[in-house]
Nucleic acid binder design. Structure first.
Lengths: 219, 219
DNA sequence: ATTTTTTTGTACCATTTCGCAAAAAATTCC
DNA sequence: GGAATTTTTTGCGAAATGGTACAAAAAAAT
């Protein structure tokens, strides 16, 4: 029920020693708690994750949870936001780093697979694709985030392809936007298949085939 | 609370007048009840759909539901089976009918979009992709069905591409299996995006672009 | 040492959930 | 008509759910 034993909650380096909070000190670190909540939501989805589960996983009791993150829906949204931030960080370097297009795509998909296949009790898939998209029909806020996620991915891929085109790695006749959507589709298909426990080897084969079609087998 | 008012449950034509059931007659038709259950599961997912909801939607009270279909999980599985059967029927003709490859793909995706975008309270997406895949991590039976679904789709597309290749619509160098996986990926991406209420026009644009890449813009 | 502030821990509430048992109803068979 | 059979109906009950009230605890401020 306790999140950590280290008595003094070591002040984060990037959190510039805030001016000494006043009351009883927190028994948890919001960041790690949110991470645990995210894990649960990814594993079981929104409805199947109870506050008790969340409470147990985060080491916070329900009132603390409520006080820190709001009700279940808010916690879900904050978890999702966290997931996207993490994914952005993991992908950021690669999308920025200007490798040859094939290498670049390979790295991107490798990172994606790492994310989708992680999880102690089975692969967790992609939050956006699996859990969030489900809620998106009914909840406008979540829907907005999901749509934003799709657009962001499409755009990032499009930038890659456009750059490759400028560098002469792709024929000028290629349509970067279309290729980007195919690249996203490939992300989506491996995310879904991962959730059904398709082994990594097979997913990598799918990725490889898709890359060949997108940039030409020559590469 | 009543499923139908027509007193005599008009015997289905294809159900060859079974030898007069003995006890109190059913107040529902299993087929339509299962359809209603399917609708609910597609809309809300497994966990968020309660037996009361199902009871209300099917017009059967809980014990009847239980007697007819077993517990919630069994009902879910039977609903999913029904969904796949329906989808197979809807797709069957097209996959069988030997049109030019482009026309064929266009039809397939059109039918898929019809399925994914239907639903009175928002598009319901694809059962396999949205709801079933979520449960697949934990439930081996559901996982098996989902994997079967993926394989079936991949295979059906592969047959199409192979045939097109034989008819000379595709270069001999093309890899039918890889193209099939891309075609499936496109199915998956539009299923997911549909759930987030991306308008049909955009989804059709994605499909169009994907087809162009798969069979060459010439077609 | 006392007060203030903040968080925790316990307990509680109203509702919903799934599943079942027992009784009532509707039909066929004798 | 009465017995047998099958289904519906009512309603129970134990557990779980999301959310909250309130006192105790722990720290800083006075």
């Amino acid at each position: 029920m306790v999140q950590k034993n280290k008595k003094p909650p070591v002040p984060r380096i990037d959190a510039p020693v805030l001016p000494k909070r006043r009351g009883r000190p927190r028994a948890y670190e919001p960041d790690v708690a949110l991470g645990k909540a995210l894990d649960l939501f990814r594993k079981d989805g929104f409805a199947a994750t109870s506050l008790d589960d969340l409470s147990a996983a985060t080491g916070m009791n329900r009132p603390s949870l409520y006080g820190a993150f709001g009700d279940k829906r808010e916690l879900f949204i904050k978890s999702y936001r966290r997931y996207r931030d993490d994914a952005r960080v993991a992908m950021g370097d690669i999308f920025r780093n200007e490798l040859p297009i094939r290498k670049r795509l390979e790295r991107i998909y490798a990172v994606a697979l790492d994310i989708y296949l992680s999880g102690e009790s089975g692969p967790r898939g992609c939050f956006t694709v699996m859990t969030a998209a489900s809620e998106a029909v009914h909840d406008p806020d979540i829907r907005a985030m999901v749509l934003e996620g799709f657009a962001e991915l499409d755009k990032a891929f499009a930038v890659c392809f456009r750059l490759a085109q400028e560098k002469g790695e792709l024929p000028a006749s290629a349509d970067a936007a279309v290729l980007a959507q195919l690249a996203s589709a490939t992300i989506h298909t491996i995310a879904i298949r991962a959730r059904a426990q398709v082994p990594r080897k097979e997913l990598e084969a799918i990725v490889n085939g898709a890359i060949n079609v997108m940039i030409g087998t020559a590469g």
